[in-house]
Design a protein around this nucleic acid. Structure first.
Lengths: 231, 231
DNA sequence: TCCCCCTATATTGCATGCAACATGGGGAGG
DNA sequence: CCTCCCCATGTTGCATGCAATATAGGGGGA
């Protein structure tokens, strides 16, 4: 990152945190790697103070681990961890789904439908990356419809923490097709405001998705569990 | 707090965060109040650096709000917010309950039963504060039984954020008695490892509890909603 | 009298300096 | 040759200084 661009005073640590979050989620910073403060301050063009504040933010999001006198380390995420995080996400989405069906405004539902159609178009075009991105947005938006800021915040945190591990599953064509079908069901349930149905469809969607994703990851990275780095 | 006690190097911001968290949760720092850095550094005997790091931690826990050039403000929690937080807690406990029934060790269940009996004894003795404290512990332990560290972490955060608003309900004798009865059901469902039942019992328990608590708070503090400070 | 602007002061955001601690490599002893 | 210890170097934790911004209060103009 070029140190030319000066970030505005007052939000520097937030931007730095966001940047490092991207580095971790995208895999540019491998899991388990210690982060050298000096290197990052030079790359980002900020001083150590906002950087260290960013570490604290990322630590409480569960993305890095800070050890006294040893600084920040990107946390290692095993498949087990991802599975446990998905368990939490299912719980959060269950609440979100039911409340969304009660509280979503027509405009919100229309926006999700737009996103859905866009996502399907990207599926047809074989644009996996775009598809994946819109997919994440749809899930977040559904949760947002519940009108519960805490829910939104927590869901977003947990979701982005494991994002990069959930990408692989759709590389299996059958799974990708099936996922799109499941999303049709999701949209229908939401439009018909059938909370319990939406909850169950989402639950199954995540469990199915993870089952395939896990097997893909394990076949690509046979030692599996302990360190699940590069995709 | 006396500045005599020196906190160990390397954990100062964590301890400071924990201290401020207590100040907020206990109500010593009123909701909506701006926090002056200088005053707190003097009270706590640390410099501004760890204090500001602590603010970042507390911000991502949703306890304070940081505005550029205006520093940290204790977040205002309305009854609406508490209700929304309870919604999240119910979602988390739903997952926790089902997994706990699958994964809890006999030792864990025995410990919860011990806590339960202790809590009932405190009920009989009219020890509301003790009762309340053990009550919180039981709910946390049930969630812990799910063996999901993320779930434990998030549940704990959300739960402590609104803790002080959930105390009032049991001052109504009928509610208190009913709550104890509901806890019998909770314990039974757990011992019999009936996940869905436990989930529903917990859900009802929280909804009932909050319904009464809210009415108590509103009768004590008629303007209600906007600022729900001193109990 | 009231309102607005301008200035003095307080407070925050960030950079940097210093001390504590970790780390790695070379030499002495076995 | 191996091991352990010690020191040189690098890195982190925290305190502090400086600049940018907020804020309060008084004086001037309408």
């Amino acid at each position: 990152m070029d140190s030319q661009t000066e970030w505005p005073r007052g939000q520097r640590s937030a931007f730095v945190a966001s940047h490092i979050r991207d580095l971790i989620v995208s895999g540019a910073l491998p899991h388990g790697q210690r982060i050298n403060e000096r290197v990052l301050t030079e790359q980002l063009g900020v001083s150590r103070t906002p950087l260290r504040e960013a570490f604290k933010i990322l630590e409480s999001e569960g993305l890095v681990m800070i050890e006294p006198n040893r600084g920040a380390t990107v946390i290692k995420i095993s498949h087990e961890d991802v599975e446990l995080a998905i368990e939490v996400l299912i719980g959060l989405e269950s609440v979100g789904a039911e409340r969304a069906c009660e509280r979503a405004t027509p405009a919100q539902i229309a926006e999700i439908e737009r996103l859905h159609l866009d996502m399907v178009a990207n599926y047809r075009a074989g644009e996996l990356m775009q598809y994946f991105h819109i997919n994440q947005t749809i899930h977040q938006k559904i949760v947002d419809c519940a009108g519960n800021p805490n829910l939104t915040r927590i869901y977003h945190g947990e979701s982005s923490r494991i994002r990069r591990f959930r990408y692989a599953g759709n590389r299996v064509p059958e799974r990708w097709a099936r996922a799109v079908y499941e999303h049709e069901q999701i949209l229908d349930a939401l439009k018909q405001r059938q909370g319990p149905l939406l909850r169950e469809v989402l639950r199954a969607h995540h469990l199915n998705g993870w089952r395939i994703t896990r097997s893909v990851l394990e076949s690509e990275n046979p030692q599996s569990g302990e360190d699940a780095s590069r995709t």
